[in-house]
């Protein structure tokens, strides 16, 4: 059985500790990940901006990388959802369309795989901190990952989960939106950070590094020290102390 790691370009280049934490957590449950190095980016920045040919060039590296895999796991709901868009993206290319259909059905976001496939919610982690959770839009709304992170967080010993007000509101990232419509995006992320600060949580946790980079970047800009982590990092830190 071949279980592959889809690192996502953002985690690969900027947040390697996230994919590493995920790989280490999965290894504790007998999942031997392999990492095909031909993978680059899922192509979402180009897709969402309406540059589909450019998106396809990037997406082909993902389709080629995971052709032989039985399961593919990514530390991002958004990039996983992008893979779900591939059949539409390659609708005029019968060869890659078939690969796209196959990849869609075998790709999972990290908590989806942990909870739905492995059936694990209690990883034996301990994390005695006040934590709040931001459900990223693509993961929660479009991919439907809502219960899984809650189940995982609920099983962490010592963790106090504080609800984030207006949690489901977008953080304002939106890929190139944050650059093209910088002031609207800025207003959105400022409001999101306000809500994070209202909770007085020590840690903000989520499932998508793009959104977390956005919120963390704003918090730092304002001189705030809230720690921002991917759930895989939090869980791995939680099991490393036990």
């Amino acid at each position: 059985m071949k279980i592959s790691l889809f690192v996502t370009c953002l985690s690969d280049v900027l947040f390697p500790q996230v994919a590493e934490a995920m790989a280490r957590l999965l290894a504790r449950h007998g999942v031997k990940l392999e990492f095909p190095k031909v993978q680059t980016c899922c192509g979402q920045p180009a897709y969402n901006s309406g540059y589909w040919e450019e998106s396809r060039q990037s997406a082909r590296t993902i389709l080629d990388a995971f052709e032989d895999s039985d399961f593919v796991i990514a530390p991002s709901g958004s990039c996983t959802h992008m893979i779900h868009q591939y059949p539409g993206l390659f609708r005029e290319d019968p060869v890659y369309w078939a690969k796209a259909k196959a990849l869609h059905h075998k790709t999972y976001e990290f908590t989806q795989f942990m909870v739905q496939v492995l059936g694990v919610t209690d990883l034996g982690a301990q994390f005695p901190h006040k934590v709040t959770y931001h459900p990223s839009c693509h993961g929660s709304r479009l991919l439907g990952v809502k219960e899984e992170p809650m189940a995982l967080l609920g099983s962490v010993r010592g963790l106090e989960l504080v609800p984030l007000p207006y949690a489901e509101d977008c953080c304002g990232f939106g890929g190139t939106f944050a650059i093209k419509m910088a002031d609207i995006s800025g207003a959105m992320v400022t409001e999101k950070s306000d809500h994070v600060l209202e909770t007085e949580a020590e840690v903000l946790v989520g499932l998508d590094m793009a959104c977390l980079m956005n919120i963390a970047g704003n918090l730092r800009h304002r001189g705030e020290q809230v720690r921002v982590m991917h759930l895989a990092e939090l869980l791995y830190e939680g099991v490393s102390h036990t």
């Binding site: 944050a178 910088a182 800025g186 400022t190 963390a216 970047g217 730092r220 800009h221």
Partner: peptide
């Protein structure tokens, strides 16, 4: 526009 509202993390040495 991005850094008007945020700071950007540097790329770590190793990907």
């Amino acid at each position: 526009g991005w850094n008007k509202y945020r700071v950007t993390p540097a790329l770590p040495k190793q990907s």
